[in-house]
Design a protein around this nucleic acid. Structure first.
Length: 567
RNA sequence: GGUCCGGUAGUUCAGCUGGUUAGAACGCUGGCCUGUCACGCCAGAGGCCGCGGGUUCGAAUCCCGUCCGGACCGCCA
């Protein structure tokens, strides 16, 4: 902490090495402990906590006794060794014998404890966010976030990436989430939209020859929120030219490893890669949590030959979880999860100290099945692979299985380019600018659902942390994809004319990605909610409880804006 | 948009099958206390029971509506 005229040291910086020195500190009063002939004050600033002390015979004694919680004070005196140290505090071996104290500001009594373990509910803390952020644990989280962004900037800048800002007032794009909209005053009846991501702008930067771009970009989506979602959120947005998918993955694998190493001292091994098809078949999810190694195996052929009536004509999968045992109640829960996710049957077998029990014992001679030891096995019949993922997650959650490793980071690649909605209409699985896999180009028209994309996700502990792709860089290929999505030439020109035009002026091969920074910080900080790693977050209904936003406008302002809405 | 949970002292909660004066802990105020660090001890103040309506002799408690917060589903290329 920098010294100023108000202070010579940060409260948390003082150690035995400063004992005997005259020091001046400034900060907030955490608590006053009045013992009669002694008074102790805990003084807090961002650097930590320091104990101040005054004895009865000192004129400071009366002054310290009068201080209230969260008053802002400045104190000066000689640092001395404590008679009874506190080993739980970094400054626990020293204290400041106060010779002078100045109250810089009073404070109202705070509505909740300004401590890591606070007694305030989140609603109250959001209303007094400046007090909540005064808690050391919050300061550490925002410091972690700032350090992470600084590491990212340094890594990318060293690799020829250029940080470019893109506008917040842009044009609404037809796909994706609902836009936040801003009415135009100068052209009544027209509207700006806030960006859902700088996707198209960064592609235009590649066309412009900027080669490697990044931005810590604020993005906006007007959808309903959750604990893990905010109306505005922060992306690390990146794009590169003249690179293969392989080179993009290497670049960002390096970034992620660097952040883990420099931020929390974790050396990650090389990231395994799963294709989308493998991830779905083995884990039933496109973002599998690989902290747990157990995975599904298809046993349909074997199952069809067994005398189990509900295994005929169905795809059957087998999962073995070693060294666990599920109660009847948990089995019922897993069955509900399976059924809710479209599975047609679920069956269990358990072995405990060599003794086997199974819900299929009346169909199968269970003693003859080869089992690897004690544990639980599950057979699931389902046509929907996502049921495999739901049951696997259910097992982890309800059996409280401890992770085998603290961090599991992997790539999922070869996502499908298209997906069909409920009515069978094609839509872009990721977004409509993704480059199809070169081996599947011939399938775009005949079998679009089997076209793979040059797309990739980075998955950390079951969370999608980053998503990206190579992009169509010729207008011809981009138009083929648009057509497959059901866009006519005229519609494509109307909606994405500027992109098609830009691609026709010498667009280089390019691709990139976007990281969800809030989620990433949340994982690194071990936080439970995005709101804990955002300085001024909104509630689930999109409200800022401190500012009182959103709020009605003054009648004149409202009337003026209403007049802009229609031309 | 749907389902569920919650809203009582400054705070976190109890009370809720209707019935004296609505409780506890922490915090706050005052007093005592020689080494505390969740200091301890004693005393005290503090309440439109979210808001509006209804049922009833009587409502924190039951019913309807509404607002706010949270979780889940939908939604989130």
């Amino acid at each position: 902490m920098e010294a100023t005229s108000y202070r010579t040291h940060g409260c948390g910086a003082l150690r035995l090495s400063e004992v005997g020195q005259r020091v001046r500190v400034a900060g907030w009063v955490r608590r006053v402990r009045d013992l009669g002939r002694f008074v102790f004050v805990d003084l807090r600033d961002r650097s930590g906590l320091l104990q101040l002390v005054a004895l009865e015979e000192s004129p400071m004694y009366a002054k310290l006794r009068e201080l209230g919680r969260e008053w802002v004070i400045q104190a000066e005196g000689i640092l001395r060794r404590r008679e009874s140290p506190n080993p739980t505090l970094p400054t626990g071996e020293v204290e400041l014998l106060v010779e002078e104290v100045r109250v810089l500001n009073h404070s109202a009594v705070p509505p909740f404890l300004i401590e890591d373990e606070t007694d305030g509910q989140e609603e109250l803390r959001l209303r007094y966010r400046y007090l909540d952020l005064r808690r050391p644990i919050q300061q550490r989280r925002l410091e972690l976030r700032a350090r992470m962004i600084s590491i990212i900037r340094s890594y990318l800048s060293q690799r020829y990436f250029l940080e470019v800002e893109t506008p917040m007032l842009i044009r609404s794009t037809p796909e994706g989430a609902r836009d936040f909209v801003v009415p135009s005053r100068l052209k009544p009846g027209t509207f700006y939209a806030l960006p859902q991501s700088p996707q198209l702008l960064k592609q235009l930067l590649m066309v412009a020859g900027y080669d490697r771009y990044f931005q810590i970009a604020r993005c906006f989506r007007d959808e309903d929120y959750r604990g893990d979602r905010q109306a505005e959120f922060t992306q690390l947005d990146c794009e590169m030219s003249f690179v293969t998918r392989e080179e993009v993955l290497e670049t960002f694998e390096g970034l992620v490893k660097t952040v883990f190493s420099e931020l929390i001292g974790v050396q990650l091994p090389d990231f395994p890669r799963l294709t989308y098809a493998e991830a779905m078949r083995w884990y039933g999810s496109d973002k599998p949590d690989l902290r747990y190694s157990f995975r599904w195996e298809e046993v349909s052929e074997w199952a069809r030959q067994q005398p189990v009536p509900f295994w005929k004509d169905k795809a059957t999968f087998w999962l073995w979880v070693p060294q666990v045992k599920a109660s009847r109640k948990i089995q019922d829960t897993l069955q509900t999860i399976a059924k809710d996710n479209g599975a047609s049957s679920i069956a269990f077998i358990q072995q405990e100290r060599g003794h086997r029990t199974s819900s299929l014992s009346k169909f199968l001679s269970i003693e003859e099945l080869p089992l690897p030891g004690d544990g639980m096995g599950i057979w699931l019949t389902t046509e929907k692979l996502s049921a495999l993922g739901a049951v696997r997650q259910g097992i982890i959650q309800h059996l409280n299985i401890p992770p085998e490793t603290p961090w599991a980071v992997l790539w999922v690649i070869d996502f499908p380019l298209f997906e069909a909605d409920d009515n069978g209409r094609l839509s872009a699985a990721h977004h409509p600018f993704v480059h199809p896999h070169p081996e599947d180009l011939h399938l775009i028209e005949e079998a679009p659902l089997s076209v793979r994309a040059l797309a990739y996700d980075l998955v950390v502990n079951g969370n999608e942390l980053m998503s990206g792709s190579l992009r169509c860089h010729t207008p011809e290929l981009q138009m083929r994809v648009f057509r497959a999505l059901g866009l006519s030439e005229a519609e494509a020109k109307e909606k994405f004319g500027f992109l098609l035009e830009a691609l026709s002026y010498g667009a280089p091969p390019h691709g990139g990605c976007a990281f969800g920074i809030d989620r990433w910080v949340m994982l690194m900080a071990g936080a439970q909610s995005l709101r804990e790693v955002i300085a001024f977050p909104k509630t689930a209904s999109g409200a800022d409880l401190m500012l009182g936003a959103p709020a009605p406008l003054e009648p004149e302002q409202k009337a003026e804006i209403l007049s802009w809405l229609s031309e």
